[in-house]
Design a protein around this nucleic acid. Structure first.
Lengths: 218, 218
DNA sequence: GTTATTATAATTGTATACAAAATAGTTGAC
DNA sequence: GTCAACTATTTTGTATACAATTATAATAAC
C-alpha cells in the first residue's frame, strides 16, 4: 500500500495546530513545512487543503494559509452546537441503546468516579470521553456519530481546560448520573436536557473559558 | 488575484457529482478530468482532496478516488440528522429571531403559497429554501447556520424529488404555518417539534425516497 | 519626513517529470 | 479450461521546474 504521506502530515499538522504550536493568524510557510517534514511542497499542500476544509486554517488565495483559532464568539457557538448535538444523541440513544452498551456506560461512569476519587485528571478525561462517545454511538445514527466525534475532537483542548476547574469533576459526575438514569429509563427528553446542560457553557464555566482564551489565542 | 482553478474545479465537480453525472463507485480518473478541465493533474488532485473531506468521494490510497453516493441507510441517517439540526435552529430562532426576519419569513411563506397556487414547482423550491435558510440564520449561531447550510445543499437532490409528490406541497404549507406560529409566539419547543416533523422522513415520504434511490444510484 | 513608484525577492499556483504501486494482460504449468 | 506467476501497462503519489502573483525593499518625487 502506498504511504500517502500527505494524509499523515495532515493529521500531525492538525495536532500541532490544536496543541497551539503555531500562533493564531500565523502563516504556514509551505517550504518550511516541507523541510520540517522532509518532503516536497506537494504533500504539504494537500495536507493544508484538508485542514482548510475542516476549518482549522484559512486559505487566502495567492497569499497563503493561516492558522485560524476560533475567537470567543465562534467558540461559544461551537459549544452551543455541541450541547445540542449531544442532546440529540441522548434523545435517540434513550430509545435505541442496547443493554450491553448501558453496561459499558455504567462501567465508564464508575471509572470516572474512581478517577475523581484518585484525583487522576487524565484518567477522568479518558473515561469521560469514552462515556460520551458511547452515547454518540448508541444514537444508532452513524452520520450523527461521526459529526459528534469531529466536533468533540475540535473542542478537545478547551474541554480539557474546563475539567481542571475546582469542583467541576464532582458536579460533572452528578450530571452523568442524571444522564445515566434517563438513558436507563428510556426517557428521551430527560436525556436530551441532561446532556445539553452537561455540555453547555453556562455560569462560571463561561468565564473560565474566556480566561483560557487569553492564554491560548494571544 | 490568483485564479485558484483548483477551487472552482472543486465546486464544479461537486455539482456534477450531486447532479449525478458520474455513477456511484465510479473511479474519477485524474488524467481524464485534467483533460476535461484543460488543466494539469495538480489542481484536479487538490479539488478531489477537498471533496474527500466533505464526503462526496472516497479515496482509497494508491487506488484512486471513487464517487460515493449515500445508500439508503446513510441517507436516512442524514435526513434524521437534518431534521434534528432544523429543530435546533427553530428552538434557538424562536427566542432570537428579529421582527424584520419574521417579516421576511412571512413573505417567503406567502411566496410559497403563491407558487403552490400557480403549480410552479421551481418557485416553490426556491422560496422554500429561503424560508429554511432564514431560520438557520435567525438561530443566531453562525456555526450552526453553516452546518445547516452544508447539509441542506448535500440533501438538495433528494429533497427536490420529494417536493414533486402529489399533495406534498399543501401538506408542507400547513407545516410551515405551524412553524411560523411557534416562531411568532416565541415557543422554542413547539418550533423545534414542528421543524423536526416537517423535515423528517416518515410515512409515505420514506417509500418515495427509497423509490427515488433506485433511479439515481443504480 | 512622507508618499509614490519601481525593482527585487519571496511565495503561491500550476505544469511536468519521475518513482512506486496497483491493475491488466500474457505466458506457462497442470 | 483453470489457475498461478511473471511482465507490461496504467495510475497514483511525490519531486522538481516554471509561471503568476504578492510582499518587500529601494529609490525618487514632493
Amino acid at each position: 500500500m502506498i504511504t500517502r504521506r500527505a494524509e499523515t502530515i495532515a493529521k500531525e499538522l492538525e495536532k500541532l495546530i490544536i496543541v497551539g504550536e503555531f500562533s493564531n493568524h500565523q502563516r504556514l510557510d509551505e517550504t518550511k513545512l516541507a523541510m520540517r517534514f522532509g518532503v516536497s511542497r506537494t504533500p504539504i499542500r494537500e495536507a493544508l487543503q484538508e485542514l482548510t476544509v475542516s476549518g482549522l486554517v484559512e486559505r487566502l488565495p495567492g497569499r497563503g494559509v493561516f492558522v485560524r483559532q476560533p475567537g470567543p464568539v465562534e467558540l461559544l457557538e461551537m459549544f452551543e452546537f455541541m450541547a445540542e448535538i449531544e442532546a440529540i444523541c441522548g434523545r435517540l440513544a434513550a430509545l435505541r441503546i442496547s443493554d450491553a452498551a448501558l453496561k459499558s456506560l455504567r462501567q465508564a461512569n464508575a471509572n470516572c468516579l474512581e478517577a475523581v476519587a484518585q484525583r487522576d485528571a487524565d484518567a477522568y478525561y479518558r473515561e469521560n470521553a469514552l462515556f460520551h462517545k458511547l452515547i454518540y454511538q448508541q444514537s444508532g445514527n452513524g452520520f450523527l456519530e461521526q459529526e459528534a466525534l469531529k466536533l468533540h475532537d475540535r473542542l478537545k483542548p478547551y474541554r480539557r481546560i474546563q475539567l481542571h476547574l475546582r469542583g467541576r469533576m464532582k458536579q460533572s459526575m452528578a450530571e452523568h448520573e442524571a444522564i445515566m438514569q434517563a438513558l436507563t429509563n428510556a426517557e428521551p427528553n430527560k436525556a436530551a436536557i441532561a446532556l445539553r446542560n452537561h455540555v453547555a457553557v453556562q455560569g462560571e464555566k463561561f468565564y473560565h473559558l474566556m480566561a483560557s482564551l487569553k492564554a491560548t489565542s494571544q
